[in-house]
């Protein structure tokens, strides 16, 4: 028996919005510790990994580990039927479950919507992502990162990210011209969520596809801050932390000439 009741149901709605562009079908791996999902996009250059810890639910019950194969588009459509303030409960029998039950309770507890989503068998490869000491780690406002990606898309389909001592620079060059945005590291004691923090082991310069980064910024509503982790010739990690877990996106760099 699997049951997970999320008081902040709106979070689940936002989460689905942040993965559905990248991945169509995925397994939700349920265990005692929580709900996890890992899936690559069709081209295998981008990956999304999310975790919702069991402590974030009230109650959370999962007797044994199993996977729920879900078409994310369908789940997203059903979640659109939930109000932003609704409490969302997910239920499934166990491994033999062929559907996922969802119930949406409004805050007054006088309207309850119940839905069933058909599940599917998804044979998905799972990559083991090693713990990495990145050359550069940047914590910055998520809305700023979203704006930079959106603005530079006007100029090019790729962006070069250069990180040096106290500056992160985003550069795009295209047929119409070029553009760049430099952010200096800042610290605001009053509003730490507005500061740009750069932790640097060594300088990094990497190029990425803006189309994918734009997709990753669908996670912006989940957190006021975004964490960018870069190492030479390694995939970029873009992370949005939430109270009850995280969503991480990985993107392979464009390398060589």
């Amino acid at each position: 028996m699997f049951e997970a009741r999320l008081i902040q149901g709106g979070l689940l709605k936002k989460l689905l919005e942040s993965v559905k562009e990248l991945v169509t079908d995925a397994n939700f791996d349920c265990s005692e510790s929580g709900i996890a999902l890992q899936a690559m996009d069709n081209s295998h250059v981008a990956l999304v990994s999310l975790l919702l810890r069991s402590e974030g639910f009230d109650p959370y019950r999962c007797d044994r580990g199993f996977s729920l194969g879900v078409n994310l588009n369908s789940l997203n459509k059903i979640l659109k039927c939930a109000g932003n303030d609704d409490i969302i409960t997910l239920r499934a029998d166990d491994n033999s479950a062929d559907s996922l039950s969802l119930s949406f309770e409004n805050p007054n507890n006088d309207r309850i919507g119940e839905y069933e989503l058909k599940l599917m068998d998804i044979d998905q490869e799972h990559l083991s992502i090693p713990e990495t000491d990145y050359d550069a780690t940047i914590i910055m406002p998520s809305a700023e990162f979203q704006r930079i990606c959106r603005d530079l898309t006007v100029v090019s389909e790729s962006v070069t990210i250069d990180v040096s001592k106290d500056t992160i620079k985003f550069t795009a060059e295209g047929e119409l011209g070029s553009g760049n945005i430099k952010l200096k590291s800042t610290s605001s004691i009053d509003k730490p969520e507005e500061s740009v923090n750069i932790e640097l082991g060594q300088d990094v310069s990497l190029q990425f596809s803006l189309k994918y980064l734009m997709n990753f910024t669908k996670g912006t509503p989940l957190s006021e801050q975004v964490i960018l982790c870069l190492s030479e010739k390694m995939p970029l990690l873009v992370e949005y932390k939430m109270d009850i877990g995280y969503i991480r996106y990985y993107l392979a760099p464009k390398i060589g000439d």
Binding site: H44, V45, P235, A252, P253, K254, G256, D257
Partner: peptide, 14 residues
């Protein structure tokens, strides 16, 4: 032309 390898290139399968 720059190349973009798939993520399997970086992350080993278990």
């Amino acid at each position: 032309v720059k190349e973009q390898y798939s993520l399997e290139f970086y992350f080993n399968k278990p």
